[in-house]
Simulated assay, not measured.
Amino acid sequence: MTNKLLGNGFQLIRIPDLVEKHDPNGPWIEIIINDGRNRVGLISAPPGTPPDPHIHPANNEWWFVFGGKTQWQIGQYEPLKAGYGDVVVAPAGYSHDIRTTGDKYSLRVVVMHPNSNHNIRGIAPSRYIPVEYDLPNPNLIHTKFESIKKDFDENANDSQVVVKDNRNITTYVQTQNNHKESFEPQMFDHWIVVFEGEYTISDKNGNDMNIIQGDIVVIEANTAYSITTTSKSRSIRLVNTSP
């Protein structure tokens, strides 16, 4: 894993660097965050990867997509297809099964409980019900990144919470060029995923780090920082914090 420290309290994870070091023809998972709230892994699955339907009875599990084409079966909902930047949620007790449908590997990041396992196998649904896209967030089964972008005013700062449970508050955040936000230290680690655009993160000592699409930054507990949007047009990131 390629990590760089910006002073103390920051970890940079570059998705392209992780992909480059693995076999592109084989399925793999690499744990990239394990902070006590979540165990977070980057998963690559080539076409033909065997399905693994299973259930987590007590905890939600959710994913965001970095590349490729995937089909998801969540509980009794009809199969859905998710693309880049989408968020998919399997509520506690819902069987879930994920398959690569394109002609190349797919990339997704799974966010799971630290003690999560695949010991309880899923049961094939007896019927399908439509995925509900017209309900308000958070915690929809499938949130489309392109729909979020359309809902946001392209020339304004905006946000939308997409996952909210006892471990996570996860929000799409859109900001415009030169927009700067400063954050006081938090009690828990939190992290940022860049889906579109560029940013500069600065620590309290004035050290800077540029982050771009495909980067994940972990900000450790008790770390103050600021983030400035540096792309010429809007930038969009996913921010995960503790409730």
Rank of each mutant, 00 (worst) to 15 (best):
N3A: 11
K4E: 12
G9N: 05
L12P: 00
R14W: 02
R14I: 08
D17E: 15
H22R: 15
H22N: 14
N25G: 15
I29K: 12
I31C: 13
I33P: 00
R37E: 10
R39P: 00
G41Y: 08
G41H: 04
L42G: 00
I43D: 01
I55Y: 03
I55S: 02
I55K: 01
H56A: 01
P57T: 07
A58K: 14
N60R: 05
W62C: 04
V65Q: 09
F66L: 15
G67C: 05
G75P: 03
K81A: 09
A82D: 05
G83K: 08
G85S: 08
G85Y: 06
V87R: 01
P91M: 04
A92Q: 13
R99S: 13
K104A: 14
L107M: 09
V110L: 10
N115K: 14
S116T: 04
S116G: 13
G122E: 06
A124R: 12
P125W: 08
S126F: 06
Y128G: 04
Y128T: 08
I129M: 10
L135Y: 07
P136Q: 09
N139P: 12
K144D: 04
S147P: 00
D151C: 05
N157R: 07
Q160Y: 03
Q160H: 05
N166K: 10
R167Y: 11
Y172V: 06
Y172K: 09
Q174V: 05
Q174I: 03
N177L: 08
N177K: 12
E181M: 12
F183A: 08
E184D: 14
E184R: 09
P185T: 04
M187L: 13
D189R: 01
V194Q: 00
Y199N: 11
S202A: 14
K204T: 09
K204I: 11
N205T: 11
M209Y: 02
I212F: 12
V218Y: 00
V218T: 13
I219H: 00
I219E: 00
T223K: 00
Y225M: 06
T229Y: 09
R237V: 07
L238Y: 00
S242M: 10
P243W: 02
P243I: 10
